[in-house]
Design a protein around this nucleic acid. Structure first.
Lengths: 191, 191
DNA sequence: TGTACATCAGTGAACGCGCGTTCACTGATGTAC
DNA sequence: TGTACATCAGTGAACGCGCGTTCACTGATGTAC
């Protein structure tokens, strides 16, 4: 059934971005083909180029989408927690096992973002996305009343949770990996 | 000039592993072709399969090699530092800019290790390598006299330096990235 | 409101390139006598 | 010690597959009259 109404077309385009975002988070840019994306979106691969000029153009949007939904999830999780346990709740959530298509975009996209040439929109999307998650973290974990030491602590915890997640993802649930996670959590004051 | 003496053959094999290790650290497994490796080793691509059954078999050895030389570098760096500043020296060194072929193997190999099927020797090489670097770090940053709190701190710093390096590699030297690095360093007691 | 026509989202096959792997061949190494 | 021969590391071309991209075609959408 060729051709759709304008509204349907936009919805399908959004679906492609959506689906690609999850696949890229789960398996990375290189391991996901255009045909994988289009199949998952319920179309055939030829139609892809009616929406995007290239695979890289899709990456830029799919990555942004991934960072957005990650930031949104963070806000929602913290919203449920009591006021003073925000950082702890965030780190707990971040380090909890998740479906592959919900994997941390900072980690999932890093290799491909680093590989891509400097001045691409997809690379900029990565930079903006990571900065966004960092700012989200700092906003949720600290407030105006926080001392500079507290902010420094939060910044370090941000890096630590990313590192811990990277190692846990690649290695799995061994005791020494759990020890790292527990050490991080132990450093986060619950008050 | 076909055929080499047995000694030359072994030396060439070692050179392939060496060169591949650097290329994989710099550009990742998928972005480095057999012909790249062999060209850099001063041979033609066909000869590769006289030494290894497959590209993945090379990865297992090249990755191990990368972890080994990384651990060795850590030991050397700390050796130069005064006794009580070992952890600080290690983190300073780890976060300092390096040539691409010296990039952190935990980060460079992570994506490909995660992607590879569960029971491969290359995947095991990654696990072992990361465990090795973790143990090296803990050995250098703590000793028998260290309290459990100190060990926890060190473990968290290990994760934090990996996370900070990941972000710095992909994003570059922006102020907020430098702030993360400084926050980590500020938490490492110099005494 | 109805009709003829242009548009263009989507199809599915094909193209072209790169890369892992294979293969027939070469000639130095090293062994057997 | 010398000589004939088997081995096998290394060469360079070719194969085959997957994937990004292109393309001729289809038929529903939506516009012009």
């Amino acid at each position: 059934m060729p051709k759709s109404s304008k509204l349907e077309t936009l919805a399908k385009r959004a679906r492609i971005v959506d689906v690609a975002s999850g696949l890229f988070r789960a398996r990375g840019y290189a391991d996901v083909g255009i045909s994988d994306v289009m199949k998952a979106a319920g179309m055939t691969q030829g139609g892809f180029y009616k929406h995007f000029p290239s695979k890289e153009a899709l990456a830029a949007e799919a990555w942004s989408r991934g960072f957005e939904s990650s930031a949104q999830a963070w806000n929602e999780v913290v919203g449920k927690a009591s006021n003073r346990k925000r950082e702890r709740a965030l780190i707990d959530y971040y380090l909890a096992p998740k479906a592959p298509e919900r994997a941390c975009p900072m980690i999932s996209f890093e290799h491909d973002a680093s590989t891509m040439s400097e001045n691409t929109t997809s690379r900029q999307a990565y930079r903006d996305g990571v900065k966004g998650l960092h700012d989200t973290f700092m906003n949720l974990a600290t407030d105006i009343a926080s001392s500079e030491e507290d902010k420094n602590k939060a910044r370090m915890h941000f890096a630590a949770m990313v590192g811990a997640n990277l190692l846990a993802t690649a290695i799995g649930d061994e005791p020494w990996i759990a020890a790292i996670r527990n050490s991080l959590l132990a450093d986060v004051v619950e008050e």
